[in-house]
């Protein structure tokens, strides 16, 4: 956001970015489009008058980039409302948690061997969950709790539901999710999370006949 105050030394009223919502929103679209162009650069394009696999993605990406620049330009030329609270910190807080999974994903086979005697997928899930929870609590200093703990809870559910089963994974995820608001009341949420876990453990595998495993497999 520091660029937003780029003109701060000049008399303060006029910033370079007059409508920050447009500018930053547009910029993010340009970056996404550029990324997509790079990612689709190896796909074959038109063959005669037939589309190749790469034609449509590139067509969309170029148009998106053009519009992204357009929206950025609007942000420079017209006045708009200031950014809302937590625009950057909320988004990047959530993103940081998901990104922290990438090394765990790539080194899963090695991490799994760290604790002998315990099935490797349980080790990976436990370490992944701890990393995400610790990171989420550390980030509460700079980012809002909502995006942090909603993201953290979902990740924890995702990585632990297979090795640990529905009951444990959803209870842990629920307790973490309860931290997403400052008015968390510990006893109340512990009980409420247990009730919800029980409800889900009955509804999904039995009520709806979904093939979900309830307990860890040893």
């Amino acid at each position: 956001m520091s660029e937003g105050q780029g003109g701060a030394r000049a008399p303060a009223q006029r910033h370079v970015i007059r409508s920050p919502k447009d500018f930053w929103g547009g910029l993010s679209l340009v970056l996404v489009a550029a990324f997509a162009l790079w990612a689709s650069s190896d796909l074959p394009g038109m063959r005669g008058f037939a589309f190749g696999p790469g034609t449509a993605p590139r067509l969309f990406a170029y148009s998106l980039m053009a519009l992204g620049f357009g929206v950025m330009l609007v942000g420079l030329l017209t006045d708009g409302p200031p950014l809302e609270k937590f625009t950057f910190s909320g988004t990047f807080g959530g993103a940081a948690l998901v990104i922290s999974l990438i090394p765990i994903y790539y080194f899963a086979s090695r991490i799994g061997k760290w604790v002998p005697g315990v099935p490797p997928d349980i080790v990976v899930a436990a370490i992944g969950a701890s990393v995400v929870v610790v990171l989420a609590f550390l980030l509460t200093n700079v980012a809002p709790r909502g995006p942090l703990f909603i993201t953290a809870a979902t990740i924890i559910f995702a990585i632990s539901v297979r090795p640990l089963g529905l009951v444990i994974s959803s209870y842990v995820a629920l307790v973490i999710a309860a931290n997403a608001t400052k008015e968390v009341r510990w006893l109340e949420s512990m009980i409420w999370c247990a009730v919800l876990t029980a409800f889900c453990s009955l509804l999904f595998p039995y009520g709806l006949n979904l093939p979900l495993q309830l307990w860890p497999r040893f």
Partner: peptide, 27 residues
């Protein structure tokens, strides 16, 4: 949250789908 997470996981039994939901959440 938990209904969403279980619901999306159960479509393909794919944990990656739940992580993607979280990603689209902050997007």
């Amino acid at each position: 949250l938990i209904f969403c997470a279980i619901g999306v996981y159960s479509i393909n039994n794919a944990p990656a789908d739940a992580i993607m939901v979280a990603t689209f959440g902050f997007i």
